[in-house]
Computed example of a mutant assay.
Amino acid sequence: MKIYLVRHGMDEEGYRGGWSERGLTEQGINQSKRLGEHLHHHAEEYNIHTIISSDLPRAVQTTREIEKKLNMQASLMKDWREMNNGDLAGMLHKDAEEHYPGVYFNTLEMDSPFPGGESPRDFYNRISTSFESLLRDIEEQTVKSNVLLITHGGVINILYYLLEKREWSNKSSFYPMDNTSVHTIEKGRHGWKLSSANVLSHLD
């Protein structure tokens, strides 16, 4: 049983992310196409039966390119969105600085939400719950393994901390996570573990 975590393709710079409705750049679309082609050419090796994606545009656009190559349809889920940064979502950096000076993901207290959004603890709890649910569904075979999960850097980072049983906060360091990188989780004798990290061979 495996889960392949994928971070979405490159999106537009200069804007706050989170629940931004902004999409991918041309390069991000190209990265996604190349990942789709790679997964298609190595279909037997990956043996993907289920695709799940965040429903934010940058993840959906990445997913659409993969769906075309694998001839499969994804389930789009709000649960796998990046942290909800509320009023700052998709805002130009300079506008965010003007209207919400000093308000960044890593400057919030764990229980302090973004204006109109989530707190870091809310975000962590949402991802923990979603992940536990997915693992249970795979183990009970209500979701068919192997699963391709297209999501966001902040989400995958939390999953690293969960899998390594390390305490997470919004001030924790980030694991390496490039656009369209693949991170593999496998179920072994001792439970679910990371077996490969930040793989980018499809872009070589």
Rank of each mutant, 00 (worst) to 15 (best):
Arg126Thr: 05
Thr25Ser: 13
Lys2Arg: 15
Gln73Tyr: 07
Leu39Ile: 05
Ala89Leu: 07
Leu35Gly: 00
Asn125Phe: 12
Leu5Pro: 04
Thr63Glu: 12
Arg189Gln: 12
Asn84Gly: 10
Thr151Arg: 09
Lys2Met: 13
Gln141Thr: 09
Leu148Asp: 10
Gly116Lys: 12
Val199His: 07
Tyr100Ala: 02
Trp168Leu: 04
Ile66Phe: 08
Leu76Lys: 12
Lys171Trp: 07
Met83Thr: 11
Arg189Trp: 08
Asp55Ser: 08
Ser181Trp: 00
Ala96Trp: 06
Thr63Ile: 03
Glu44Ile: 03
Tyr124Lys: 15
Leu24Arg: 03
Phe174Met: 15
Leu149Cys: 03
Asn85Gln: 14
Arg64Gly: 01
Val143Glu: 14
Glu13Tyr: 14
Phe131Gly: 00
Gly117Trp: 08
Gly154Leu: 15
Ile150Ser: 07
Glu118Lys: 09
Gly9Lys: 01
Ser53Lys: 05
Asp137Pro: 06
His190Phe: 13
Leu163Ser: 09
Tyr124Ser: 04
Gly191Gln: 08
Pro57Phe: 06
Asp11Leu: 00
Phe174Ala: 11
Pro101Phe: 02
His190Ser: 08
Thr50Ala: 03
Glu98Lys: 15
Ser133Pro: 00
Glu140Asp: 11
Ser195Val: 15
Lys2Ile: 06
Asp95Pro: 02
Ile127Leu: 03
Lys171Tyr: 10
Leu70Ile: 05
Glu12Val: 09
Ser32Thr: 05
Pro115Leu: 08
Val60Asn: 05
Val60Ala: 09
Thr25Met: 06
Val199Thr: 05
Gly90Asp: 13
Glu140Cys: 06
Asp204Ser: 05
Ser169Arg: 03
Gly117Val: 06
Thr184Leu: 06
His40Met: 13
